[in-house]
Each structure stands twice: as structure tokens, then as C-alpha cells.
């Protein structure tokens, strides 16, 4: 179970907003990237949040550039999960690849307000708003993505299994 505060954003928060190119292209250090998380909308965002907080956003979160530095910046800034109405495709893949949990809930921005405390259950794909007491169901994740979510990304997965999710022998 994850517990934290929601930081609510609008629709179409793209990866240029999450971390501008000129910062992300000049470092390979995730903590340096984290200093610029959400720079396009709030340059003080990394200082304002507490470790374990969540981003809640509207549709098409993470659109545009393929930059993996976007989810990396959010993760290393302390964001524990992103809940959005929908995600752009490369951002979505990148989150599983690097182990940043994401959940898709239509209308979530209507059901969570800035600062609401949330309880996220990644095993059951639910988000509970502790302020309104409402429990929301997120889209369930299956297959390879579930393995990546559980094992926090491809690198950890590979280190543990010495294989990729599709080459790992199935248990008897």
C-alpha cells in the first residue's frame, strides 16, 4: 500500500513540461534530472513535494518526446505513482521499464482535489481518496507489464532472473 498526497495537474502534461530538453540532455544522473521535475509548470515542484506523494492528472499524461528522463525525474523527485485519466504511449512504456507505478482512472481529476490524501493498492489496482472515502478502480494490468510493475522495471527484473519477461521459463 502506498500513501501520500495528490498533486493535481491538467490534461496533456507533455514530457517537455515534465523535464525540458536542455536539462535532461546534459546529465545521466537521475537525482540531477529530479531537480527539474515538472519544471514547465512549477519550477519549485521538487522542493514542495514529500517523498511518496502522487501526481494526479488528466488525459494524455506524458505526451510528446520519448524521453525516459521524464518518468525518471518524477521517480527520483520522490513521486511514488502517477494516476491519470490516460497516458501517452511511450511515457506509459517508460514507466513500466523504469519501475514508476502508474494507474489509469477515467475522470480521476474530478474525484481527487489538490492535496487530497490517497491510498494506492497496486495489487488490486485501486485508489482510495481518504478525504472523500471514495475508492476508485484503475484499469488492470496484465502480462509482461504486471511483472515489470511488481519487480520495479526491466533492470531489476533482468538482474534477478537473468532473462527478459518473455524469455523467462514459466514455473511448472
Amino acid at each position: 500500500m502506498l500513501r501520500g498526497k495528490a498533486w493535481v495537474f491538467k490534461d496533456c502534461v507533455n514530457t517537455d513540461i515534465i523535464i525540458p530538453f536542455r536539462f535532461k540532455s546534459r546529465t545521466n544522473d537521475p537525482y540531477e534530472m529530479a531537480k527539474y521535475a515538472m519544471y514547465g509548470l512549477d519550477q519549485d515542484f521538487p522542493k514542495k513535494i514529500s517523498k511518496g506523494d502522487f501526481i494526479v492528472a488528466g488525459r494524455n499524461f506524458g505526451g510528446g518526446s520519448s524521453r525516459e528522463q521524464a518518468p525518471v525525474a518524477l521517480k527520483y523527485a520522490g513521486i511514488a505513482a502517477v494516476v491519470a485519466e490516460s497516458f501517452a504511449r511511450i511515457f506509459y512504456r517508460n514507466c513500466f521499464a523504469i519501475g514508476l507505478p502508474i494507474l489509469e482512472i477515467p475522470d480521476v481529476t474530478k474525484r481527487v482535489a489538490q492535496g487530497d490524501e490517497l491510498l494506492i493498492d497496486l495489487d488490486n489496482f485501486t485508489v482510495q481518496n481518504l478525504k472523500t472515502k471514495e475508492t476508485m478502480s484503475a484499469k488492470r494490468i496484465t502480462g509482461y507489464l504486471q511483472h515489470l510493475l511488481k519487480e520495479e522495471g526491466f533492470i531489476n527484473y533482468y538482474k534477478k532472473h537473468k532473462s527478459f519477461p518473455w524469455t523467462t521459463p514459466k514455473p511448472p
Partner: peptide, 18 residues
């Protein structure tokens, strides 16, 4: 199509991706 860096590393290692 486009992917991120870690998935590119997986392709470099295996020649495959989901």
C-alpha cells in the same frame, strides 16, 4: 516506432521487445 532508453537497452541486448 519510438521507445525510451531502457527499452532500447533491452533491444540492444536481445534483439526483441514486447
Amino acid at each position: 516506432t519510438g521507445v525510451g532508453s531502457t527499452e532500447m537497452a533491452i533491444i540492444w541486448a536481445s534483439g526483441q521487445i514486447w
